[in-house]
Amino acid sequence: MGDPLGMAITHAVASGMGGMRAAGDLVARMQIARGMRIDEAKKYVADKLNVSVRDLTDPIIMNEVRDDLGLGILHPNVRSPKCMEAKFNIARLLDIEINCVNRFKEKASL
């Protein structure tokens, strides 16, 4: 229940990491793949991206970092890695298994 403005957007603005605007999806991946708690997950991602933990929620810094590393951004250019392509790069950079990436490779005989 609850309308998205009152619930999802409120939490995203008050406490969230910003998703793809910043590095929220990447930190979430470490909880999913390794069961890391928040501080460990943030540090792991920050180290891999060579940024500070505080930078992880900064959309200006993270947009540039994500664009440079091909991790997917909100407004991708024509040649920017997007979606599945970006997830290939995320899996490699974070050194994790991503289920759909592995299945894509398997089906495409990569």
Partner: peptide
Amino acid sequence: VGVEPGKEIVLSYDGTPIK
């Protein structure tokens, strides 16, 4: 109001399309 910078956390959802 919002959390102090650096204390942000990850969000997960339930029933998203239903909203």
